[in-house]
């Protein structure tokens, strides 16, 4: 299979030249790389779905090549970062088989809200430049669509709320014997014990209701509005796709002089539908998925 991918690259290169000759256009050296590059995320979708020709021209929906399975197999096999040895050929093969099966093929749809953009950004917070991660998803408004903020990961917020387990441990933690609480007769004493409670800053969230869940997006917006945080720039961008049943993949930009470049699949995992919510939380909240933060 390893030879396969190399072979495919050759095939793709061949295509570019044959396509060129047919059009009577002479390309400069290096243009075959641009032609092969998945130049926009839009092109990633259209290649994945088999909705355009090799030069990027849209097929009309009644064109016999539109979403044609063999063509999709070829396109998708070159939509993986082929230098990433972590994605084994058997896994990729199984994925390609699943999405291009004649009986029940799977397509991507950018107008769904089950894919996320992850932006590693830099913000100025308390006069220092800090990494921060924004997650955006698609939302409909009127007849159109837009990207909206779904979540924010910012280390100082996480650190402040270390008592909260985003992965489901919160309920367990609350039965811990040492957890502070406001006793059930506090109302009889005018809640005079609140003052004491509010000095225990480390554990203050333990006085909150079971359903309490810190919302970092609110905090982020609050800090921006207060002028404590200032947005500086986007450092990196990638996408998380949960659209294909029982699969997850990540798409990021691979910049290299190669016929396997541009927006490519850089992670591929089998994930049961029931586990996808956990994976989403992992991506949103786990520090392994974020730029390192040095205080």
């Amino acid at each position: 299979m390893k030879t396969n991918s190399k072979f495919l690259v050759v095939v793709l290169a061949l295509f570019s030249t044959s396509g060129v000759a047919a059009q009577g256009v002479t390309y400069d050296e290096g243009n075959e790389f641009i032609l092969a590059e998945t130049k926009q995320v839009n092109q990633f979708f259209r290649r994945f779905n088999g909705e355009e020709d090799y030069e990027g021209k849209r097929f009309s929906t009644n064109d016999p090549r539109y979403q044609q399975a063999d063509m999709r197999r070829m396109y998708i096999s070159n939509l993986f970062d082929n230098l990433d040895a972590g994605m084994v050929d058997s896994l990729k093969g199984s994925f390609i088989y699943t999405v291009t099966r004649e009986k029940d093929p799977k397509f991507l749809n950018h107008r769904r809200n089950d894919w996320y953009a992850q932006l590693d950004v830099i913000i100025k917070y308390e006069k220092k430049e800090r990494p921060c991660t924004l997650f955006l998803k698609m939302e409909r408004e009127n007849m159109g669509t837009k990207w909206v903020l779904a979540n924010v990961y910012f280390k100082p917020f996480i650190t402040l709320f270390k008592g909260v387990d985003f992965f489901g441990g919160a309920a367990q933690a609350s039965v811990d014997e040492s957890s502070p609480y406001l006793h059930p007769k506090s109302h009889e004493i005018n809640f005079i014990n609140l003052k004491k409670a509010f000095t225990r800053l480390d554990e203050i969230e333990k006085y909150a209701a079971n359903e309490y869940n810190p919302d970092f997006l609110t905090l982020f917006i609050y800090e921006l509005k207060r002028g404590n945080a200032e947005f500086l720039e986007v450092k990196n961008l990638k996408f998380h796709f949960f659209q294909i049943d029982n699969w997850y993949f990540e798409v990021s930009k691979v910049n290299r002089k190669s016929t396997n470049s541009g927006w490519l699949i850089t992670e591929l995992m089998r994930v049961a539908e029931k586990d996808k919510e956990i994976l989403r939380k992992y991506i949103f909240f786990h520090e392994n998925n974020h730029l390192p933060y040095s205080p």
Binding site: N109, R111, R112, N113, D114, M138, R140, T145, A150, N151, V164, D165, F166, F167, G168, A170, N213, P214, F242, Q243, K276, E277, R280, K281, F284
Partner: peptide
């Protein structure tokens, strides 16, 4: 579990 408002796979 603490969650983020999600509508899984809503299509527009």
């Amino acid at each position: 579990m603490p969650g983020i408002a999600q509508g899984a796979g809503e299509y527009f």
